[in-house]
């Protein structure tokens, strides 16, 4: 985001806090189309205020807000609590803002910068995000950008799936142009169907693949399709070409009790877990084994 936008949105957030009786604390990060601020509620509880940029990226903001509204109807411990959606006028411009719970435990990228997760932690992470995906799938939504940056933690360690800016509603027509070589998302974590922009094959199993990659990375520090000497571009090319992941990593995951990962990263959606309940059951079996 451009510095002038950052500054403008911070002013909007501050004005919004003042109007709502909230205490503005600090910036908590920004993305391509929004900025997030840490604020305190009337009782001192930490909250996140998101201010969405006006203009070209309104569509993404609308997607995220729409998805959060849908998901908030159900609610889940591994999805952020969505508290309010507001329209706020500042300097003659109307901005869209949301108030969500503030997740104090950092994100998975930060956790992994300190080292791999233990196998037990990976199992818990896999189970929790699988449950979040069940709620997302129930609403016909596909997150499309699951990666360590978008998995945050509560202070009690519960993993929470965040950032629905690329969410797609399967009940609505796709907005991605068919001629594009890739669909939206972060290529390093994306499923083959996403990398190849095969829109007919995108569903919750696309998220399942990205979660599988994320979990493999958390457990072993490498992408499951990575062969020795591969850089990120080669890995992405292997996934897009639907090559098989190296057998040794799959064997290792199975030996370590992380067998669900091997199925989650199958090149074709039909090879993965069919429904979220199947994935959750697989992780529960691992947990109890």
């Amino acid at each position: 985001m451009k510095p002038e936008h950052e500054q403008a949105l911070a002013q909007v957030a501050q004005a919004f806090c003042k109007a709502r009786g909230l205490t503005f604390v600090c910036s908590a990060g920004d993305g391509a189309f929004k900025a997030t601020y840490r604020v305190h509620g009337a009782k001192g509880q930490p909250l996140a205020v998101k201010v969405y940029l006006q203009g070209a990226t309104t569509e993404r903001a609308a997607r995220e807000v729409g998805a959060m509204l849908e998901l908030s109807k159900i609610g889940h411990k591994s999805l952020p609590a969505f508290l309010d959606l507001a329209s706020f006028q500042h300097a003659g411009v109307t901005f869209v803002l949301s108030i969500e719970e503030f997740l104090d435990g950092g994100n998975l990228t930060e956790a992994l910068s300190k080292g791999h997760l233990s196998l037990k932690e990976v199992v818990v992470l896999g189970s929790q995000i699988a449950e979040a995906l069940a709620v997302v799938e129930q609403q016909d939504l596909v997150h499309r950008d699951i990666k360590p940056d978008n998995i945050m933690f509560r202070l009690d360690g519960t993993a929470v799936l965040v950032d629905f800016g690329l969410v797609r509603n399967l009940a609505m027509q796709s907005l991605t142009q068919s001629w594009l070589p890739h669909g939206p998302g972060t290529p390093f974590y994306a499923a083959p169907e996403q990398l190849n922009n095969e829109k007919d094959l995108i569903d919750w199993r696309t998220d399942q693949f990205a979660l599988g990659v994320t979990l493999a990375l958390a457990a072993y520090g490498q992408h499951p399709y990575q062969h020795s000497g591969d850089g990120p571009e080669q890995v992405v090319a292997r996934v897009a070409a639907r090559q098989r992941p190296p057998a040794d990593l799959v064997r290792r995951a199975q030996a370590d009790g992380l067998a669900p990962i091997a199925k989650m990263i199958e090149p074709w959606p039909v090879g993965r877990f069919r429904w979220p309940k199947d994935l959750i059951a697989a992780w529960q079996t691992v947990t109890t084994a």
Binding site: E198, D200, L201, W268, P269, V270, G271
Partner: peptide, 13 residues
Amino acid sequence: AHRAEVIASIVSR
């Protein structure tokens, strides 16, 4: 080639 995988991926939905 791979038509079975594509169709199965759609039908399994």
